[in-house]
Design a protein around this nucleic acid. Structure first.
Length: 163
DNA sequence: GCCAACGTTGGC
DNA sequence: GCCAACGTTGGC
């Protein structure tokens, strides 16, 4: 975790397949906190390693499911560390090229704060303020993407009724 | 299940 | 360093 103190909070969108870990699953976990396992993309890993800080806002996004969209609000809870599944031959996230003395893949803890109504991709596309969101761009695949503050405000404020 | 888009791999 | 082949993502 980058320890630069006192920077303004940042905001992130994090994708999770609800069959793996839904917002309900996260809220039901101890302390509503889950290790964000399975990131196997260098750009997303670097966000966790270099840019995400405790307290950053997270939109919890459900992907690869019947109703893709924003399903909850969470926060970065810290704890950046090697993702143990990379060393587990029985895990679908096993990476045989990763060595324990030089782990390739990291995870961090995400604390779910609340479930929201499902904000679908179609609804997100209706709002001009959100036109630049990575998750709305063609061909996007990144499972962790930064959000602009205005995007965070529009979604947590306007779309979710200011709560 | 389809398939476009993307990231990674590896031969050269 | 190029780039074709391949595997994966993820909405539809």
């Amino acid at each position: 975790m980058n320890a630069t103190p006192h920077r303004p909070p940042r905001y992130w969108l994090m994708k999770s397949e609800p069959e793996e870990c839904s917002i309900d699953d996260a809220l039901a976990a101890p302390n509503a906190t889950v290790p964000w396992t399975g990131v196997r993309n260098y750009q997303a890993r670097n966000f966790m390693r270099d840019e995400m800080q405790v307290g950053d806002g997270v939109l919890f996004y459900h992907s690869s499911c019947p109703e893709p969209g924003i399903a909850g609000i969470a926060r970065v809870a810290g704890g950046t560390r090697p993702d143990p599944t990379q060393f587990d031959p029985d895990s679908p996230y096993h990476d045989p090229k990763s060595k324990p003395d030089q782990p390739r893949w990291l995870l961090l803890d995400v604390q779910a704060l609340r479930k929201t109504r499902l904000i679908s991709l179609a609804e997100l596309r209706e709002h001009p303020d959100l036109a630049q969101m990575r998750v709305l761009q063609r061909g996007n695949r990144l499972s962790i993407t930064p959000l602009e503050a205005v995007e965070w405000e529009a979604i947590t404020g306007r779309l979710l009724g200011g709560r």
